[in-house]
Amino acid sequence: MNDISGKNGPELPREAPQAATSLAMPALAMDRVSHAYGCRKALVDVTLTVPQAHFTALLGLNGAGKTTLFSLITRLYDTQQGTITVLGHRVDRSPGEALRQLGVVFQARTLDLDLSVMDNLLYHAALHGIGRRTARQRAHEVLEEVELAGRARDTARDLSGGQMRRVEIARALLHQPRLLVLDEPTVGLDVASKSAIVAHVRGLVRERGVAVLWATHLMDEVEPSDDVVVLHKGRVLAAGAAANVVQGADMRTAFTMLTAGADSTGAGME
């Protein structure tokens, strides 16, 4: 059960405010996480870290396990093995505290198409226990940031794909999370919307110190200064600064070599 007061099990020591803001603590830490659907293994021994105020790309082809990984981070289901920690809060022990620090943009569209943009945002705010007045104010701020302030009263259905994505990102930021996770946020968008979204999220990292985990299969969304985690058939093949992982080759070649190498040595599972 989502016990946010920590009544299950022993009371954990309260994190001191300094510790919570310490940059040494990773925004997201996954430690030897494995997950299987029946006998099909979706994730095997996944260990990864997303440092605070960093852009971390999770690279993987379709079926690599990215969506499962997101489901575990957002606690759609429990971690079968291993631990996931969001800013010092274990997702299984204090899900409320962990989810409060977390902004999520799912791969599937999650706006309520019948409601207005503003109503979608207010609903999300209510789910986080944010009162009406604060919610309205913040909603205007986040919409301003994604340059959609003028569309607040429009029905979500009337927005373009790129605009919906921007609203979803705005919504994910409404409760001021310190970790933003995005599952293939640019899929199906045109080049202009895509680069606008990438630029916006990179701006959040730079200017506000938000940590970002950006799942993608598109190599051109990764910059050499990013951290990358390469996920292939449920396993982490490589992790580290993009420049090191790539080692001189261009991103696409490096990724192809890595995944091909894994397949030939039998690290894959199929």
């Binding site: 946010i4 957002t74 999520v104 999650t110 309520d112 789910l127 986080h128 226990g129």
Partner: peptide, 18 residues
Amino acid sequence: EMGNMRMLLVSPLPRWYL
């Protein structure tokens, strides 16, 4: 299907309450 349920379930409040 549309993902709204996912949004409900990532609320930090306890799931039984939601």
